[in-house]
């Protein structure tokens, strides 16, 4: 059986962004890529099939990314790649300056054929220092992160309850985890999900 990983690899070897038909890969949701066999890598080691950094430029279907450790990555986006930026987005939402994490298949020439690209995603924990209008002021290790509620996008999960658009139960002093999209070069984040223990 041809796996999603094999399909991505063949897509890149085929040389084009549109070689792989989305239907051939099944669901385009990010969860679709997980649970499939990945090559063994020594625990603790750098994962060659993963990349992080900030987009320096975009050429055709390739993101040129400078890793925070100053290593360059070429990340190829194909039809089967899922992209996230506060939610599923299309490739044209990727911009120079965006931070990213990407997972895929490292090709022999060093290009990462991307299964998933998460743009500006952050997952931070802290105490709610203040709540003003649609903003949570989060104390994250002594630094304030201004977290914006985005109507239609932001939800809260109160323990095992279903996601709710109602953030009003959140209280000052409470400890929360905020998954969201960083606004590049600021201390501000757009909220995707607030995780609250109660």
């Amino acid at each position: 059986m041809t796996t999603r990983r094999q399909m991505l690899k063949s897509a890149v070897l085929g040389g084009g962004a549109t070689v792989v038909a989305a239907t051939a890969l099944g669901s385009l949701g990010p969860e679709a890529a997980f649970g499939q066999a990945a090559p063994d890598i020594e625990p603790g080691a750098v994962d060659p099939n993963f990349a992080e950094g900030r987009i320096r430029s975009i050429k055709d279907n390739t993101l040129l990314v400078l890793g925070s450790n100053m290593v360059f990555h070429s990340i190829r986006v194909v039809d089967g790649t899922s992209l996230w930026k506060l939610g599923p987005v299309s490739f044209d939402q990727a911009k120079p300056g965006d931070g990213l994490y990407a997972r895929g298949v490292r090709m022999p020439d060093g290009v990462l054929a991307a299964e998933s690209v998460w743009l500006n995603i952050v997952n931070i924990k802290g105490h709610i220092r203040n709540i003003t209008g649609d903003k949570l002021h989060l104390d994250h290790g002594g630094k304030e992160i201004l977290c914006h509620r985005i109507p239609g996008k932001s939800v809260a999960i109160y323990s095992d309850s279903p996601p709710s658009a109602d953030l009003s139960p959140l209280r000052v002093g409470q400890h929360v985890q905020i998954l969201g999209a960083w606004r590049p070069d600021t201390n501000e984040v757009d909220i995707a999900t607030v995780f609250s223990a109660h």
């Binding site: 990010p30 994962d47 997952n123």
Partner: peptide, 8 residues
């Protein structure tokens, strides 16, 4: 490797 980062 085991879930989407967006699941949190």
């Amino acid at each position: 490797r085991i879930a989407s980062l967006s699941s949190g």
